[in-house]
Amino acid sequence: MATRTVYRRGVPILEGLRYRGREGMFAWLLHRASGLGILLFLALHIVDIFLMAFGPEIFNELLVLYHAWWGRIMTVFLLFGVLFHALNGFRIIVQDFWPKLWPYERQLIWIEAAIFIPIFLWGAYQFLLPIFEH
């Protein structure tokens, strides 16, 4: 199956972008990038929640992370990453346990995109709206 090479690991990122694996390669690359982004945010989030130990003044001060306009833009990226990683991960699991779906990978990715786009756009709009209301 030609699409299988898309998942060859250890391919340098630039070569990966040049390689025309189309939907599968693109999904793989976004899955990895979003995973790294979420992990980075998670590390930050664990530390900021840990600051609960130092009392309300310090903790509330730090919440600018989520309330400031740049914090809201960060959360839009987070929403993008979590939503994509969740849907794409679900597709991967479905394919793994129903191997008959392997040949329909491209169709599955397009279904995924059709679910992702409206939810993301609606969510991003909700997240960013308060910036303009202040």
Binding site: G55, P56, N60, R72, Q126
Partner: peptide, 14 residues
């Protein structure tokens, strides 16, 4: 984000 809302999150809420 949608049920609670980021603006309502503070020390007391957590």
């Amino acid at each position: 984000h949608f049920a609670i809302g980021v603006d309502n999150i503070d020390y007391d809420l957590v």
